[in-house]
């Protein structure tokens, strides 16, 4: 039982990640593949964030200090604050997620202008016909 409580958050993220992975490798529609990639990235972000949690009264990584918000020397202990490092890394990862989503949608628009469809098998069919003629 302790094992399940200690690990079930990873299992939920892995299930979410596999939903995205399934959409990426099986779905025929390129837009669905892009959405699958987004789900995959979201699962990774959740996985990283969950490694920063500390039980036992730890709070958000902003110093609780004097009236100006600055720390009183000697009162900062690592056990009182959750790990700020995953938050920093994932803050930048979210922005990269938005950027890759934008570029992927731009590529999709160009593919649709060229082939008039975004179904993968129809695009392959058109390309095969073009190669013969």
């Amino acid at each position: 039982m302790d094992f399940i409580i200690a690990k079930y958050n990873y299992w939920i993220y892995i299930i979410l990640m596999m939903i995205g992975f399934y959409a990426m490798i099986v779905k025929n529609n390129l837009a669905k593949k892009v959405v699958g990639m987004n789900i995959f990235q979201t699962a990774l972000i959740l996985l990283f964030i969950s490694t920063g949690v500390k039980t036992g009264g730890a709070t958000v990584p902003i110093v609780i200090g004097d009236a100006h918000g600055h720390a009183i020397p000697g009162t900062l202990h690592a056990i009182d604050y959750i790990n700020p490092l995953p938050h920093v890394l994932m803050l930048t990862a979210i922005v990269v997620m938005v950027a890759t989503f934008g570029v992927a949608l731009a590529l999709l628009i160009m593919i649709f202008k060229r082939y008039k469809t975004i179904e993968e098998d129809e695009i392959l069919e058109i390309r095969r016909k073009e190669a013969f003629t």
């Binding site: 950027a99 934008g102 731009a106 628009i109 202008k113």
Partner: peptide, 17 residues
């Protein structure tokens, strides 16, 4: 940068360029 890029990506995608 982030504000300008958000606007630029949105305008490009919403009207297909």
């Amino acid at each position: 940068t982030v504000a300008a890029i958000m606007v630029s990506i949105f305008l490009d995608l919403a009207s297909a360029g």
